[in-house]
Simulated scan of single mutants.
Amino acid sequence: MTDSSVQKTAIVTGAARGIGLATTKQFLAEGRRVAMIDRDAEALMAEAKALENVLPVVCDVSQPEQVTAMIEQVAETFGRIDALVNNAGVADFGPIEQTSFERWRTVMATNLDGVFLCTQAATAELRKTSGAIVNIASISGLRASTLRVAYGTSKAGVIHLTQQQAAELGEYGIRANCVAPGPVRTKLAMAVHSQEIIDAYHDAIPLNRYGSEDEIASVIVFLCSDRASYVTGQTIASDGGFQSTGVGLPALRT
């Protein structure tokens, strides 16, 4: 049993921007301390400076030694780890025949290897708190689409890895779940999505809009909470119904 009077903590990777930063702020709002993890030191420190009860740690989650050191630093500083959100990821879109093995490995190293490494390194601490793991996949891991051979495959791997974690770590009271976001209205997405792509997504999504970073963060924070205490091994597509509408958009084929 854990002491409910002790302030809970969370680790969020890829916390310098986007969904990771939104998740960090929601954890802080509910009273948790948060270890903000990112390899972009400048962006990480700039965001952390404006927040309280955070520990910024510069770490590349694809590097085993850095991950081990990061988990040790968080455990030493906070004294406990109650939740791990594996959000760090990279996107590299392109046709299969133009995806080099180097590009493939770069995507896999962060998106899949990073989830494995962070979870393995944090398991001993999560056992002490009967903690929660939430891995961030993508709708691209649930349904194939063009130009995503490396990205989509890495996220499909994350979905299965989540089930492996749930099956093996459940006996310690550790829950593992996955969130698969659909199109999210991030600054990056809006910078690279043409109006044609935006319109096509709106037409294909039953809710007729992109999701927000906060909407995805709300699902993540819920899955880390006691309100989800009997939920494990699940993948939740937070996608406005996009998964239900079929495969592929013409605007995304080139």
Rank of each mutant, 00 (worst) to 15 (best):
T2H: 08
D3N: 08
S4V: 11
K8Q: 07
T9Q: 06
T9R: 08
A10M: 00
G14C: 04
A16V: 01
A16S: 12
A16I: 03
R17P: 00
I19G: 00
G20E: 02
L21I: 00
Q26K: 12
Q26A: 10
F27A: 06
F27R: 07
E30G: 07
R32I: 00
R33F: 09
R39I: 00
A41K: 12
E42C: 08
M45D: 10
E47Y: 07
A48R: 05
A48F: 03
K49P: 11
K49H: 12
A50F: 12
L51S: 04
E52N: 12
V54W: 05
V54S: 03
L55I: 04
L55T: 02
P56Q: 01
V57W: 05
S62Q: 10
Q63A: 13
E65F: 03
E72T: 11
Q73N: 12
G79K: 05
G79P: 07
R80M: 02
I81R: 06
V85H: 03
G89N: 13
V90F: 10
F93H: 12
G94M: 13
I96S: 12
E97V: 15
T99Q: 10
T110F: 09
D113L: 11
D113W: 11
F116M: 12
F116A: 08
F116D: 02
L117Y: 11
A121T: 00
A122V: 02
T123R: 13
T123D: 05
A124C: 05
E125G: 03
T129F: 07
S130R: 14
A132K: 07
A132L: 05
V134K: 05
I136F: 08
A137L: 02
G141I: 04
T146Q: 14
L147E: 13
R148S: 13
V149M: 14
A150E: 08
Y151M: 09
G152P: 03
S154Y: 09
H160D: 14
Q163M: 14
Q164M: 14
A166D: 04
E168Y: 15
E171H: 15
C178T: 10
C178D: 06
V179T: 10
V184G: 11
R185N: 15
K187F: 14
K187C: 13
L188V: 14
H193K: 15
S194Y: 07
I197K: 13
R209I: 01
R209S: 05
Y210P: 08
E213D: 02
E215Q: 08
I220M: 04
V221E: 04
L223C: 00
L223P: 02
D226C: 04
R227K: 13
Q234C: 02
T235A: 02
T235S: 06
I236N: 01
A237G: 00
S238T: 02
S238P: 00
D239W: 02
G241Y: 02
G241A: 00
G246S: 03
T254Y: 15
T254M: 15
